[in-house]
Structures are given as structure tokens and as C-alpha cells.
Design a binder for these strands. Structure first.
Length: 424
RNA sequence: GUGGAUGUAGUUCAGUUGGUUAGAGCACCAGUUUGUGGCACUGGAAGUCGCCGGUUCGAAUCCGGUCAUCCACCCCA
């Protein structure tokens, strides 16, 4: 009879939304410093967008999409990642006519039909950035620098950066041939998964965790040795930029992103074996989705994973969620008066609370304590006749005697109460 | 899609070889003489023991199925 949240989804309750807001603010501010503006796109798209954009041999497309037919007979898919939607919007609105580079970011949920486990959900939230129209390696460096800043700004420790190049249409096919030729020879000794990978995406075999496979492929041709001049130079330039910025990294030839659109640079920020942020360059994607030939690059960052790691490392910075003042009312007349006072305090910018559960005085005080009220005062017949109140500082117990007037309260509470607009 | 572990109150967990009315801590609500929070004490509410079926005189307990959660593989953020 009870209905629970669907498998692989979960509620962000009022008690924990504070840290989400905190994190989102950090991300927005970092994006802003790098000149990225927010884009918002629909939660669902025509299925075709992802078939053409992500690549129809990928796991994401083959078995993880939430696809259904709407009442108009269209095939619709819940967005599994943000890049395809961004490119679609870029092409659809002719944004290549705006000054290049075009830089945008998003914070949005993604949907993938997978088996949930640590750091993996069916609905997860992603901070993503995309940049169009910049073919230079300095663009890659800038994007990676932003990712690096984001990691640092959250306060996360021990995050490492790995980069690689997957080549371009002029050199990747040649490398793939070499690799396949090598792998065919040891095919019988490779695990079942690797045998499947051989036909779908041979480069992924380089990342197999099976020890036998690792031994077999020890002498496999390395991708970065087979890059064309253009890709090779691009990679070298990127490394120089990163070194100039003091961003440390490892070149890891086993990094192969699971989405087909990547060209040249791919990278990941990893902590404790979990990828927090992954991205790369996709110079052919805009054209493939019907736009003009336009280079592009970006990354995606899983918010649940970031928060999981932050919790693990005890990074607990989050906005204060309390209440400036609680009015404990006693009696019918005071109850009505406190309602008006409460409203006045709120319109003066304070967070003010009063009883709406029919509690007695003692229970009201108890509740004021539980919700973290900074000040309280009792409003009863005595206060109404004398027009004097005793404002109590809940942390120290100190009493401030004064008039039953907003100006007195304002004087004690300060000019400005809890600021809701910047999260504290 | 495959494999492992686990499902008892809002939550964290007890619950004997199957045996009367299923318990505790925390949290929640109310009181400890209608004027003051934290502490203490007293009391209250709250569970179809995940769900369905089977075995049994009798099932939270044993068996089967199913669903869910966590973890791992694949893949990914």
C-alpha cells in the first residue's frame, strides 16, 4: 500500500538540501569566473538525438535509456547526459553566429536505467560545462583548469587528474586496426568481457581489471604512440599549459570514455577509485548533429558522487539553517498579536517563528530550542498591558529588557537577519 | 543483464532449538500544579515483522517465489 521512491532515485530532504545549495553555489561561482553562463534544457528529447549524438554501440544507448512513446507517437527519451542536449540547442538556435567561443554550464538531473550501487543512481545530478568553437589546446587547458578549481573549491582532498588522447578520425582507425590485430592473437586467453569488447570498443580492453588480461595486453600498442601529428602536437601543447598552471596530472592510456563522440583529449578527476568528473573534446559532434563544423569540449561532474566524497572526508561546510526569533504566546489576545508581530518581523527580513500547533508555553520554549532559535520572548497579558518584553538570548540565557516594538527587536537582532538569498 | 549480503516502529537495532499480548536506544507528543528551552523523571502514540504463497496445532523465526535496499561485475558521473 505504501508507495516508495522508484529504484535508483532518492529524495533530497529539507535537512540535507542545505549542502546541495552550498555545493551548487560553489559550482555556479566557479563557472562564472571562467565565463560560462547557464543553459537550461528539457528533461526529455527525441530519442534520435541520443542515437546520433552518443553513439548507438554504447552501453548508455543500448541498454540504459528511458525510452517511451508519447501520446503523439513520438519516441521520447529521458536525457541520459547533457552534452547532446546542449549541442542540439546550440545547433537549433544558430548559436554558432554568436561570438566564439560559446561557453555554457548546467546543473541538471540525468536518467539512466542501470543497476544502482555506490555512486550510481538511475536519476543522478550533474554539473556540466560545454565550450564550442575553440580548437586550440588552450581551450582544453582552460576546461581542465575549471574542473581542477571546482575540485579544490569544494575542499576535497586527494583528487587526481588523468588525461589521455583518443585521437581523431584520421589517426584513430589506424590505431584501432593495429590494436585489433594485436588482440586477435591473444583472443582465446582474454576474458569473456574482453572478447565482447573486441568487436564493440577494443580500446576498452586496455582498462580490463582481470589479471590474466592485463598480463596478455602488457605489450599492446599504446594509443598515444599512434597519434597523427595534429593530435600529438595538441596533446603536447595541453601538457605544457597544464604544467604552466601548476596542475599536476598523469597520462593514462587506459582512459577511454564510454561515449563515442570524443576526439583528441579525454580526462577524468578521480578520488578513491571513483570518477568525480569526466570529459573531453568532441570536434565532430556539432557537425554530426546537423550543425556547421565546430569544435567542442566539456565535462560532466556527478553531484551525488561529490557529496558522497565530501561526506567521507568530513567536509561539512553548509549554510546555517536556524531561526532569528521565536515568539512564545500565551493567551488568545497574545496569540493574535504574535501573529501580526511575526509577520512584521518577516517583512523586515528576519526569520521569525511562532506556535501553530497549539502548544503550551513550556512546549513552545522547547520547540524554539529544537529549531535553533537565536532569540525568544514571551508574549502574554502582562506584556500586552505593560508593552514591555524580555528578549532572551537562547545561547547565553542573557535577557534584554525593552519595549514591545519592532525597533527594539531590530536593534538587538541586527539590521539584517538570516539571508536566504545567498544560502547563508 | 549476472552474482553476493540484507529486509522487524520515523530511525539504529535486539528478538533463544518455531511457542502466549513482538522489544530497547534515539527521535516524536504530552505531563512533572496556566509565565520560560537544554538536564532529569513519568506517561503516550507509533510495526499486517517488505509482500505473496507453502510447511506446521502454532511462523518475525523454516521453505519457495517476488519486490526493495546495499555491495560487486558490465558500464558510467
Amino acid at each position: 500500500m505504501k508507495i516508495s521512491a522508484p529504484k535508483g532515485t532518492h529524495d533530497i530532504l529539507p535537512g540535507e538540501s542545505g549542502k546541495w545549495i552550498w555545493l551548487e553555489n560553489i559550482l555556479r561561482q566557479a563557472a562564472g569566473r571562467y565565463g560560462f553562463s547557464e543553459i537550461r534544457f528539457p528533461a526529455f528529447e527525441h530519442t534520435e538525438l541520443f542515437l546520433r549524438g552518443i553513439g548507438d554501440t554504447t552501453d548508455v544507448v543500448q541498454k540504459e535509456m528511458y525510452t517511451f512513446q508519447d501520446k503523439g507517437g513520438r519516441s521520447i527519451t529521458l536525457r541520459p547526459e547533457g552534452t547532446a542536449s546542449t549541442v542540439r540547442a546550440f545547433v537549433e538556435h544558430g548559436l554558432h553566429t554568436t561570438p566564439m567561443p560559446f561557453k555554457c554550464y548546467y546543473i541538471a538531473p540525468n536518467f539512466r536505467y542501470e543497476n544502482p550501487q555506490k555512486g550510481r543512481l538511475r536519476q543522478h545530478h550533474q554539473f556540466g560545462v560545454e565550450c564550442f568553437g575553440a580548437k586550440e589546446p588552450s581551450a582544453d587547458a582552460e576546461i581542465i583548469a575549471l574542473g581542477n578549481d571546482v575540485m579544490a573549491n569544494t575542499g576535497l582532498q586527494n583528487v587526481s587528474l588523468r588525461i589521455n588522447s583518443v585521437g581523431c578520425p584520421s589517426c584513430r582507425p589506424g590505431y584501432n586496426q593495429k590494436l585489433i590485430k594485436f588482440l586477435e592473437n591473444c583472443r582465446p586467453k582474454l576474458c569473456q568481457d574482453c572478447n565482447n569488447r573486441l568487436s564493440r570498443n577494443p580500446m576498452r580492453i586496455l582498462d580490463c581489471k582481470n589479471e590474466n588480461c592485463r598480463a596478455e595486453i602488457k605489450d599492446a600498442p599504446v594509443g598515444t604512440d599512434s597519434l597523427c601529428d595534429d593530435c600529438s602536437t595538441h596533446m603536447e601543447q595541453l601538457k605544457i599549459y597544464l604544467e604552466y598552471m601548476g596542475i599536476s596530472f598523469d597520462v593514462d592510456p587506459s582512459i577511454v570514455r564510454g561515449l563515442d563522440y570524443y576526439t583528441k583529449t579525454v580526462f577524468e578527476f578521480i578520488n578513491d577509485g571513483i570518477t568525480l568528473c569526466g570529459g573531453g573534446r568532441y570536434d565532430d559532434l556539432v557537425r554530426a548533429l546537423g550543425g556547421p563544423v565546430t569544435p567542442g569540449l566539456g565535462f560532466g561532474c556527478g553531484l551525488e558522487r561529490l557529496l558522497m566524497m565530501l561526506k567521507r572526508q568530513n567536509v561539512t561546510d553548509k549554510p546555517w539553517e536556524g531561526c532569528d526569533i521565536y515568539i512564545a504566546a500565551l493567551g488568545v489576545a497574545a496569540d493574535r498579536h504574535s501573529m501580526r508581530l511575526c509577520n512584521q518581523l518577516r517583512s523586515h527580513g528576519f526569520s521569525a517563528e511562532r506556535d501553530i500547533c497549539g502548544r503550551g508555553l513550556k512546549a513552545q520554549m522547547k520547540h524554539a530550542d529544537k529549531i535553533g532559535a537565536r532569540y525568544t520572548f514571551v508574549l502574554g497579558e502582562h506584556e500586552l498591558t505593560t508593552e514591555k518584553i524580555e528578549l532572551k538570548d537562547m545561547a547565553t540565557g542573557q535577557i534584554h529588557a525593552g519595549n514591545l516594538e519592532i525597533s527594539f527587536l531590530e536593534g538587538i537582532l541586527g539590521n539584517r537577519g538570516r539571508n536566504h538569498s545567498d544560502g547563508g
